[in-house]
Design a protein around this nucleic acid. Structure first.
Lengths: 303, 303
DNA sequence: CCTTGCTTGTGAGCTGACATCACATGCCGA
DNA sequence: TCGGCATGTGATGTCAGCTCACAAGCAAGG
């Protein structure tokens, strides 16, 4: 099993540093090793080459002709490697890859991104839909947005940027003419598979006892459920921010108002090697969320 | 203590191989590691870059745009490194660095080298004078020539190319007119510091009892001693090959002839990574030594 | 549909390349 | 002659990077 490409890269780098500085101890400083390490590397390289690369007395080493030629070539080459490496890293710095719970991305984040691009044209944002807890050591995300009431994440800093309110929504046409409220017992109740206990939580927070209902329907995603609600298939329970626009446009009605939940929308940033530009993204996120309209308050429901 | 030049060379090489082959398993074969090693290196590089370099399903990985750009640059660059490395090694292959006992170099080897250069113009020979036992793992020699009766050297192959004969020599003018032999007791006996027991060995091999002598002189090197002998300062003991030319030219006389010693001139070659061209050097050495004239035989000395 | 075979991803654990430390060695200038 | 400064090196430590073995994703053929 022959090593076809068995270049002694470590030794070549050590030699190149030595050639540039003229002294092993300086090269050692640059590479953050001891002079002995550089000495061994250079010696090993000479053995591999079968030629002397250095000459002269110990305290005033010079390069041989071969060494000079090798060093000249290596210098340019390592520069080139470094250049393309940092270039890739820099271009990566210009792109923020954000993992975001899908509904917020679709209903709130993506529609507003153009304002971020306008402010920071040098940065571009890529949004990927995700729901599971984020692990920056395993996934290539630069930031994550989640709806959670956990205030800390191991190895990450958490910034809450938006309070959460939730409440029932339905198609305006389902509210009986002349009434302010529909009867929650008379309509199908819509659920989502990821969060089946949502209605029970809302009832607890709203101080309501949910009446029995004729029908339950379950949807894979919250935004499917919202489409169903808008189409008049029943009453859905949703965070306010997802439907603020639909309510303003009259596609959905929220006759019971919204109630605050313990969970909040959080920006989660890795503590290890956070990308430049994330601070701008966080600032923008905080400003943008501050302009969000407050939700209609919880209405007192007639029993 | 910042690592100014902390390029992940191993990871970059692994990535470059992967990019060239398009599959990690092939890159792994080239680098003589397992596919897992390449996978980890590429993944680590992506983390360092902060950008994805690969995309697509596991069984059909492709490069991202960033990866493509990086790979293009790295490919050329590693080629360049390899090129200059093998170039240095090749140029080193053309030069044979021979460690040789000084007197043989001066009196025999160097005067004949032109015939080697004429036969092998692509090879050049550099001769360095040395006497101590050679250790190829510590000294940058490609070959060594020694006078020794030890037939094997650890980690090296030994080729004897010239028998050794030694005998007394002196300035012709010191031989009394009309006599064939000078009186060994009447002349200063010349010694060398590295080999002070030479006279005693010779006496044993020649079956002679050395008479007391008026004076002993010691020289640092054999060739200083030979100069002293030629200048008429006494009788020196020397290997035949060193003085063959001086005897032919009449500068020295060897009235007692020469006697064979157990030691022979040996070419010692390293077993590890012997340099191309050494076989030619050995062949030439054997041919050249075969043409050496035989020494005058040991003369029977009148008591 | 399931199976088979290709690929890459990864947890656990080992190992040797490469580092350090401390001392030796060699050259220089005061 | 001696102290200062640079590199060379034997002994020893340690972690980057490897292997192993298994998991998992995808494709194609039965």
């Amino acid at each position: 099993m022959p090593k076809r490409r068995h270049l002694p890269l470590t030794a070549l780098r050590a030699f190149e540093a030595f050639a540039r500085h003229g002294r092993m101890s300086l090269a050692a400083d640059e590479l953050c090793v001891t002079h002995g390490a550089v000495s061994r590397q250079v010696r090993g390289l000479e053995r591999l080459c079968g030629a002397r690369l250095t000459q002269g007395p110990r305290n005033n080493l010079k390069l041989t002709d071969s060494g000079e030629r090798l060093a000249r070539s290596l210098g340019a080459t390592f520069d080139e490697i470094e250049r393309s490496f940092v270039e890739v890293r820099a271009s990566a710095d210009r792109e923020l890859h954000v993992s975001c719970v899908g509904t917020l991305a679709m209903k709130w984040l993506i529609p507003r991104l153009s304002s971020f691009h306008a402010r920071r044209p040098e940065l571009s944002v890529r949004v990927t839909e995700a729901y599971s807890p984020v692990d920056f050591t395993r996934e290539p995300f630069d930031a994550a947005i989640r709806l959670s009431d956990v205030a800390t994440v191991e190895g990450a800093t958490v910034t809450s940027f938006l309070d959460n309110f939730h409440g029932p929504v339905l198609a305006p046409g389902l509210i009986p003419a002349g009434a302010h409220f529909p009867s929650l017992g008379a309509l199908p109740r819509l659920h989502t598979r990821p969060h089946p206990q949502a209605w029970a939580e809302w009832a607890g927070q709203a101080g309501m006892i949910l009446p029995e209902t004729a029908e339950h329907r379950e949807y894979e995603h919250l935004f499917y459920m919202l489409e169903a609600a808008a189409a008049g298939l029943g009453v859905g329970l949703t965070p306010w921010i997802y439907v603020a626009a639909d309510i303003a446009a009259g596609r959905l009605a929220a006759p019971f108002g919204f109630v605050r939940t313990p969970a909040r929308f959080q920006l989660i940033l890795p503590e290890q090697t956070p990308k430049r530009g994330l601070a701008h993204f966080r600032d923008w996120l905080l400003e943008e969320s501050a302009t969000a309209p407050p939700p209609p308050e919880m209405a007192l429901v007639g029993a």
